[in-house]
Amino acid sequence: MKQLIETIVKPLVEHPEDVQIDVIEERNHITYKLSVHKNDVGKVIGKQGRVAKAIRTVVYAHAQATEQKKVYLKISE
C-alpha cells in the first residue's frame, strides 16, 4: 500500500526525494500520512482537490481489495 502511494505520487512532484509516508495503524482503520515538499503540496492536491481526489480513489480501490481495515489518506506539508 505504501509503495502504491509512492508510485503514484513521485512522478507528480518536483521533489520526489521529499515524499514521505507515515503509517498510523489504529484499531478500526489505518491512516497513511503523506507529506511532500512545501512547493509540491499544490501539485498533489490540484485544482478543487482534483488530484487528491484521484489519488484517494485509486488508493481506496486497492485498499478495498486487499486491506481488512478502513484506510485513510492524509496529505500534509
Binding site: 503514484i8 512522478p11 507528480l12 481526489k53 489519488i55 480513489t57 480501490a61
Partner: peptide, 17 residues
C-alpha cells in the same frame, strides 16, 4: 472500478504525468 471511477481517476493522474 464502479462505473469507471478508478479508471477515470487513473486518467486524471496519467494526464498530469
Amino acid at each position: 472500478g464502479k462505473r469507471g471511477k478508478t479508471l477515470n481517476a487513473l486518467q486524471t493522474l496519467t494526464q498530469i504525468v
